[in-house]
Each structure stands twice: as C-alpha cells, then as structure tokens.
Design a protein around this nucleic acid. Structure first.
Length: 258
DNA sequence: CCCCAGGGGTACC
DNA sequence: GGTACCCATGGG
C-alpha cells in the first residue's frame, strides 16, 4: 500500500544494499524496486520521509536502533561503522528464500547471488515470487545447475527436499534457542556455521546470530573482537562491521600492508 | 594467467 | 584440533 511516513534512525539504501537481501534494485530515479513475499514493492527515502510500498515489519521499523546500538561493544572501528552507516537495520525476511539465497551465496559475490536468485525466479517463480521449496524440490539437478548454481545446486536441492518433506520446519527455528536452531540448520549439507547464522539473523529473529565471512573475519582480526563479546544484538553489530569493512577494502588509500 | 568471491566437505596430520 | 585442497563460475 502506498504511503508516506516519517522515519527516524533508518537508512533505506544502506539497509537494502548491505548484502542481506538480493531482490532489490535501485532505479536511476532513486526508487528501489523489489519483491517481498508475493508482492512487488517500490519504495524510496528522501531525508526522513519514506514513501511507497512501505512494509514496516519487513523493514524492522518497530525496533529501536538506539537501544540496539547501545548494547554494542565500544571499539573504535565499530563506532566508526555505526556512525557512517547509521540507520542500517536487519530486515525480517522469509526463511525459505533466505536459506536458498545464502546456500547460493557461498564463494560468490553479491551481484552473482542476485543473478542466481533472478534465474530461479525466472524459471519457477509464480508472478515474480521466489519459488517455493516444493517447486525446487521437484526440479532436476541439471536445471538447478543451469541457474549458475554450480556445485551449490545439490545443496539447494537437498535443502528444498528437507523443507518440503517437513523434515526441517523453518518456522520453528525462531522459537528455538539460538544454539538449538543452528544445530537444526547445520544438518543440511552445504550449510555450515556462516550460512546458518545468516538464515537465523536475517529471517528468524535471532539478533545474536553472528555470521563470519571473509570481511567480518578481517574486522574481527583488526579489532580483537570476538563474536561472544558483541552482546545480544551481535548480528546487528556484525552487519555494520560487514558493510564498513567491505567499503573500506574496495578503496584502499595506499598499500595497507608492510 | 593470475586472483578472489557473504563457504563447506573431506582428507590428512 | 588445525590445515590444504577441492568444488563451479564470473569478473577484475
């Protein structure tokens, strides 16, 4: 539904382009187009005005960013990241789409993950929606591989079959304690600690889940932080570290080494 | 031709 | 318990 609302402590572009969701495109005119569930959405932010198909729950606008950030450990790099990317929020995404997307993410760049997701939607998506686990479960392995999944195709197929058969109940993960929920996801082939934590953080409401990829690993090494030091909203802190470290590494001022 | 990418499985020590 | 190598593929 098209609305115009006033938002505080929110940054739409950073949130949508921080590598947690893969279906948003920034148009030349500043609008973002995407699909949430089975709905096409168009949204933009001008100053504190958020306009368009605003889904406040998906955008986590009900959370108090100030209270969340107040729980972060006080280290210079994280403080700088929070200042530069203030308004970045962890979205509330749909678990199956998130699991499938992050299975596809392993050793891929964000742009390539978007490509895979696009291919899956083009082949099996109904009316632009991300294809269900039931549909993917019935796809041929060769068809999945053709979606630029490569060696990840068999992992996506296995996950789809686990969900479709009821062997894995994604909805139950949000009600479990974090270690137990992680354990469930780790049963899937091709799903290790990093991908499991992405699913738990981005789609199961587990704010403390802390995915460690190559970028976050670098930030941890340089700060001396450990995931356990980052508090009940460690996953949010992790997302700030991720965007900050990635941007920093894209444009090195000089040779940082030696 | 080299390197790397929001990793994980496996073999080996 | 670490560590090396492999998995496919696109882009710099």
């Amino acid at each position: 539904m098209t609305v115009r609302i006033n938002v505080t402590d929110f940054n739409l572009p950073v949130t949508l382009e921080s590598g947690q969701a893969f279906r948003w495109r920034r148009m030349a005119d500043g609008w973002f187009c995407g699909v949430v569930g089975n709905r096409f959405c168009r949204v933009r932010q001008i100053g504190s005005m958020l306009e368009g198909d605003v889904d406040a729950h998906y955008l986590a606008l009900d959370r108090s960013l100030r209270e969340i950030v107040a729980t972060f450990p006080d280290v210079p790099l994280l403080r700088a990241a929070v200042q530069r990317y203030w308004g970045l929020r962890i979205l509330r995404q749909e678990p199956w789409e998130t699991l499938a997307s992050f299975i596809a993410s392993s050793v891929k760049r964000i742009a390539q993950i978007c490509q895979v997701v696009e291919e899956l939607v083009a082949r099996w998506g109904e009316a632009g929606a991300f294809p269900s686990a039931a549909v993917i479960a019935r796809a041929e392995l060769a068809e999945l591989e053709a979606c630029k999944l490569g060696f990840r195709a068999k992992y996506l197929q296995a996950a789809a079959r686990a969900v479709d058969s009821g062997r894995l109940d994604l909805a139950s993960l949000s009600r479990m304690e974090l270690p137990r929920a992680r354990e469930e996801l780790l049963k899937l082939p091709g799903v290790g600690p990093k991908i499991a934590d992405c699913v738990l953080l981005f789609s199961c409401g587990h704010d403390a889940a802390f995915p460690v990829d190559v970028w976050v690993q670098r930030a941890l090494r340089r700060t001396g932080l450990r995931p356990a030091d980052c508090g009940p909203f460690a996953g949010w802190a992790q997302q700030y570290l991720f965007v900050y470290e990635r941007a920093r590494s894209r444009q090195p001022l000089f040779d940082a080494g030696s």
